[in-house]
Design a protein around this nucleic acid. Structure first.
Length: 431
RNA sequence: GGGGAGAUACCGAAGCGGUCAAACGGGGCAGACUGUAAAUCUGUUGGCUCAGCCUUCGGAGGUUCGAAUCCUCCUCUCCCCA
């Protein structure tokens, strides 16, 4: 039995922990769960922290339970939201549940061992319960006074809250509390984990267990700090939206780039949370990074580790290779030397468009080419402006006003690489 | 139902008859510097066949040589009173 709590502690993954939790986890194999709302058919990296807690739990010899919140997802947690969430249909919830299951199995062992992971959906036990049963058997044990004291509720009913709070949302903590009770009784699950914003909801669960089953019963809670970025902006979002684990939503290249671009300060925190590297390895990386910050050892290791686990080593290699070419010393010459296969694999995740050979041969205006054809720019005006600002490259060479495309501009006789600024690439294929 | 305030480009917010494609701030994009970082500085941020032209200031009309700016009606938002 590994020391789970100690492991989380040095990784900076503990925000709050109930008394006795550590003793319980050292005493015997314990089941613990994390809830995930199935609001989409894929996890995004914001979910990863909870998943990693389960991973560590399993590695320490305990039994992880992933709870898909089919029922709670239909209600929506009021915590941290100023507005009520729209309700999801059962059909969508089921579809989302399946997507999540696949992704979770990349992290957790659901197959073997006496501590193999379990996936449950609270919709399955909530669905048959009648409203009357629920308010009689569950609602009876907690006072409204207790429930109103929660921050998540207080915020929503305070004078400056604009939208108020529906009865449905108010019930959320009871429903989530009931999950814990259910798992406690049916799976002897004694631990619930989650982000620190879930503390109130989790404690409602432990409270419910004590009041309903008796005060000698003990259930525990561990929360981890919410992942924030050093600059205060929201973690896991870019201009183009959330970073998903699903390669259809976020390509492996984008995924890899996201982690590679993390700031120094954040990288130090994230590598502890999101990788399984040992304490020694991480300390070595951190000191290595401090000596030679420009090498960005931390970011590279972080990006490599997570990309390999979420996608595959092959995806990592391609993403890494692409990054080297796109951002490294790559010049027009190396581009021209590249064979078609390499070229395509490198630019696999770069937006691609096509232009007919006739149109190209007829001589195509550079501005029209950049905006309408390569769709690198919204309008000709923008293209004109950017060229004037020295921001546009064709095949890695900056172009000036009056630049003309010729057959010589083609890579492998059929591709043109357009670049806006440093980071935005567009590949145009002549067909 | 009565009274008041307002609707301006991605957002916030000036402008109140011509010099307004519209100040300023934020955000976005780009350039320099760098480590594909942070900070900083600079440029740019309606469209086009770009030293010019066209379409924009809630909507529809009107006054005027000329309107985001004045008038009329309409739509919507906010506040106060009942």
């Amino acid at each position: 039995m590994g020391n789970f709590v100690e492991e989380l502690r040095w990784r900076g993954m503990i925000h709050d922990i109930t008394p006795g939790a550590e003793e319980q986890l050292l005493k015997e194999m314990t089941s613990g769960y994390v809830g995930i709302d199935p609001t989409a058919d894929s996890l995004h990296i914001g979910h990863l922290v909870g998943v990693m807690m389960l991973v560590h739990l399993q590695l320490a010899g305990h039994r992880p339970i992933a709870l898909v919140g089919g029922a709670t997802g239909m209600i929506g947690d009021p915590s941290g939201k100023s507005q009520e969430r729209s309700l999801l249909s059962e059909e969508i919830l089921r579809k989302n549940e399946n997507g999540l299951k696949n992704q979770l199995s990349k992290f957790l062992n659901f197959e073997s061992g006496d501590n193999k992971a379990l996936l449950v959906n609270n919709y399955d036990w909530m669905k048959p319960i009648s409203f009357l049963d629920f308010i009689r058997d569950i609602g009876k044990h907690l006072t409204v006074n207790y429930m109103m004291a929660k921050d998540s509720v207080k915020k929503r009913i305070s004078a400056d809250s604009k939208s108020g709070m529906s009865y449905t949302e108010f019930s959320y903590q009871l429903v989530q509390g009931y999950d814990f009770l259910h798992l406690y009784q049916n799976e002897s699950c004694k631990l619930q984990m989650g982000g620190s914003d879930q503390w109130g909801n989790i404690i409602t669960g432990t409270e419910l267990i004590r009041r309903k089953l008796g005060f000698e019963q003990n259930a525990y809670a561990i929360t981890c700090p919410l992942i924030a970025k050093a600059d205060g902006t929201k973690f896991g979002k870019t201009e183009s939206g959330s970073i998903w684990l699903d390669p259809e939503k976020t390509t492996p290249y984008e995924f890899y780039q996201f982690w590679l671009n993390v700031s120094d300060e954040d990288a130090e925190k994230y590598i502890k949370i999101f990788t399984l590297l040992s304490r020694e390895e991480i300390e070595q990386l951190i000191s290595g990074h401090k000596n030679e910050p420009h090498l960005r050892l931390l970011q590279r290791e972080l990006a490599k580790d997570i990309t390999c686990r979420v996608h595959s080593e092959r995806d990592y290699n391609i993403a890494n290779e692409a990054s080297e070419i796109l951002f490294g010393k790559g010049t027009t010459d190396t581009l021209k030397k590249m064979d078609e296969k390499t070229l395509l694999s490198v630019f696999k995740d770069v937006p691609q468009t096509e232009v007919s050979r006739e149109e190209f041969d007829a001589g195509i205006g550079i501005l029209d080419f950049l905006s309408a054809k390569a769709s690198a720019f919204k309008s000709n005006s923008e293209a004109r402006r950017m060229v004037k600002d020295n921001a546009v490259s064709i095949n890695k060479t900056k172009i000036k006003e009056g630049f003309e495309l010729t057959p010589d501009s083609l890579l492998n006789n059929k591709y043109v690489l357009v670049q806006k600024g440093k980071k935005n690439y567009f590949l145009v294929k002549i067909i």
